[in-house]
Structure formats: C-alpha cells, structure tokens
C-alpha cells in the first residue's frame, strides 16, 4: 500500500512511462514494489518535503491508524513522533532555494525519503536526507548524548533545553530529537553515509512500541 503524494505523483508517473518503454526498468519497479510490500511499508515518499506534503502525510497516517484500529495511545505517539521527524526534514530544506531553478544535483540534495512501516506490533518511522559534512560531527554528538540518557535524565534534559532554547526564525527550537527519543521510548537508530566531499546521507530509524 504505497501512496504517492502531491507534486511527486507526476514524477512517479514519469518513471512508470519510462518503465513501460524499458523492460529492465519495468522489472525494477515491480521489485521495488515487492520489497515495500514485504517490508510492510504503509506509506512512502521521496522528494522535497513541503508544508502541504506534511499536512497530507499526517492526514493519511491518521486515517490509516484509525482504520487499523490502533489504540488511541499508540495513534498519538506515532502522530507526535511523525510530526517531529517530518518537520526536521522540512526545516532541513532551504525553501527559497528549492523553489528556484537549479541544477538537478542541487535539487536532489534537498530531497528526502520517508518510509512508515508497521512491523508486528510496533511502528517504524524511517527517514533519510542529505546533510553537509561540516554538520555531521555536531549532530552525531547530539544524538549520542540523547542516546546516553535514561528516561528521567531525558526528561530533565528536555526541560533544561526548553527553558534555555530560543526559537530560530525558521521556527525550530532544537528540541525535536530529544522529543522523538522521549516519546518513542527507544534509542535513536542512526547512521551517516558519506556520499562525497560535501555531503553525507543521514539515516534515522525511530521505533515506536
């Protein structure tokens, strides 16, 4: 059950048309579909994360969880964590630049991937996005610090950060990752894959019991 959303629908249509004229690619898209089916992917998206996309993804997931008759408690947890994960991706993108005419390579640098998976009784939110190599060290340190804290320490850390943080002009308060770790109740599973001299691909896996 994959859903292609918004402007990227057109992009997907182009892939399908391309696939129809190329037997190799046709097989590829089926195997991509099978992989997603086998991995229990509820929803997937690849492209630039916009405000409208967030609204749509959240609304689809709310309806899906309702249909799946998940407990209200779990629905709330997944929704909360999803909001923070998606908004992390959203804020990562420089929207003024994304809107302008640019090379394919630069546009790709601003695109991200989102997979929402239901595995047995838990949900997995998996995201991936490019990050400047210069920012990897700081983020890596922050995430390791968060992972080193137990439940009560995380609560204190959140309160201290909340009280001392300021909201940037983009609206970020630097609390997202702490909140994700706290609400999911699990350690953050993450990795940085070096792509080239400028960028790495940041993979984040959040498990919600």
């Amino acid at each position: 059950m994959n859903e292609f959303i918004g402007s990227d629908y057109l992009f997907e249509v182009q892939i399908v048309i391309f696939a129809l004229t190329n037997p190799m690619a046709l097989t590829n898209i089926y195997s991509l579909y099978r992989t997603m089916e086998e991995e229990n992917v509820l929803l997937s998206f690849k492209g630039i994360v916009t405000s409208d996309l967030l609204t749509t993804v959240l609304s689809i997931m709310e309806n899906k969880m309702h249909t799946m008759q998940e407990s209200p408690k779990k629905q709330k947890k997944v929704f909360n964590v999803l909001v923070e994960c998606l908004q992390n991706l959203y804020h990562h993108v420089d929207h003024d630049l994304a809107a302008s005419n640019e090379s394919r390579e630069l546009l790709e640098r601003r695109s991200a991937i989102i997979l929402i998976v239901k595995e047995n009784e838990h949900f997995l939110i998996r995201t991936g996005n490019y990050i400047d190599n210069g920012k990897v060290r700081d983020l890596n340190e922050r995430l390791n610090k968060i992972n080193s804290l137990e439940k009560d320490e995380l609560k204190n850390y959140y309160q201290t950060s909340l009280n001392s943080s300021t909201v940037s002009s983009k609206g970020t308060a630097g609390l997202g990752m702490i909140d994700i770790a706290r609400k999911s109740g699990n350690k953050l599973d993450f990795e940085f894959l070096k792509v080239n001299e400028e960028a790495s691909f940041f993979c984040l896996n959040v498990k919600i019991d």
Partner: peptide
C-alpha cells in the same frame, strides 16, 4: 491541546 510540536512548545513556554 491534543498535539503540539516542539516549535510550539517553546512558544507556549
């Protein structure tokens, strides 16, 4: 509130 994000949490504070 049913939900609020971390951006709002600072504004609420």
């Amino acid at each position: 509130l049913e939900y609020f994000n971390t951006s709002s949490s600072k504004c609420l504070l």
